[in-house]
């Protein structure tokens, strides 16, 4: 690991000032993706700006039909707290199956989505739930946020403060995990709210994406059978040692049907 200057700003404004002043400044939240990258020298910052002492970035609250999760909220809290389980149970379950317990004790929502790993689990949840990413300067729709592999719509120095998750009527996430990394080979998040259906897919392309054809079919009939015949083209899907594009295309169908079956069986808690 290279040497760097370390900063612990107390406010968002101070953090942004330090970042803009640095030659190559990088924010750190939980560090579960960033520190391995530092160790392998894939990221070589001049300055590391730790967000941990800034008040108000962690915590979960419900505002009417929206669940607001602070950016520095740890996975263990999202997975474990009743406020999440009672409003979007499958979001709690999704986070509870990410990585492993010790990683979940450190990893944060903001850090995870800023890293934007194309096989990560949070992005399809944000996309399918039509979440809003709140930063220190603006609000970004999830559809505009995830722009490519390990890239987002965040501007230089912008800090995620929270994510607003509209509470769906039905939702489920089914993941087919790589047995080694536990990242998704394919994961499908299905959400239905006020008759609108979103189907978001992770692990299958360089960026999380929505599968419109399935969404339209499910809006007609929210049943696994409605999407049985819809097959994703293998064109452009990821190829690696864990899956061919054809396999991933097939898995999208299987995971989506299972997600729909699961979501349909779990209407929104009263």
């Amino acid at each position: 690991m290279d040497d760097f200057n370390y900063h612990e700003p107390r406010t968002l404004a101070e953090a942004a000032v330090v970042l803009h002043a640095a030659r190559n400044g990088v924010y750190i939240a939980g560090g579960m993706s960033l520190i391995p990258a530092l160790k392998h020298r894939r990221v070589r910052p001049s300055d590391l700006i730790d967000l941990r002492l800034i008040d108000g970035l962690a915590g979960i609250r419900r505002e009417a039909d929206t669940l607001v999760i602070g950016a520095m909220t740890k996975h263990a809290d999202v997975a474990g707290l009743d406020i999440v389980r009672n409003s979007i149970p499958d979001l709690a379950r999704l986070v509870g199956e990410m990585a492993d317990p010790s990683v979940r004790n450190r990893a944060t929502l903001g850090g995870s989505i800023a890293h934007a790993d194309p096989a990560s689990d949070y992005p399809p949840a944000l996309l399918a739930l039509e979440a809003i990413i709140v930063t220190d300067t603006r609000r970004i729709a999830a559809a505009e946020f995830f722009t490519g592999p390990f890239t987002t719509g965040l501007r230089k120095g912008e800090i995620i403060t929270a994510v607003n998750f509209p509470i769906p009527d039905n939702a489920a996430y089914v993941k087919f995990a790589n047995v080694a990394s536990r990242y998704a080979i394919v994961g499908v998040f299905v959400a239905r709210r006020a008759g609108k259906v979103c189907v978001a897919v992770t692990g299958a392309k360089p960026c999380v994406f929505r599968f419109g054809e399935m969404e339209r079919a499910l809006e007609n009939s929210f049943t696994p059978d409605a999407i049985k015949a819809i097959v994703m083209s293998a064109q452009g899907l990821t190829a690696d040692i864990h899956g061919t594009p054809e396999y991933r295309a097939h898995l999208i169908g299987v995971m989506a049907q299972r997600a729909v079956a699961s979501a349909a069986a779990k209407p929104r808690p009263a």
Binding site: N178, V179, A180, S181, Y183, D240, I241
Partner: peptide, 24 residues
């Protein structure tokens, strides 16, 4: 069930060079 070493056919670089890729 899990373990295999895969080399990139073009370069001979192992693709299974971390616990993230090598299943156990």
């Amino acid at each position: 069930l899990f373990e295999q070493i895969c080399l990139d056919p073009a370069s001979g670089r192992p693709l299974t060079e971390s616990f993230e890729e090598y299943g156990m």
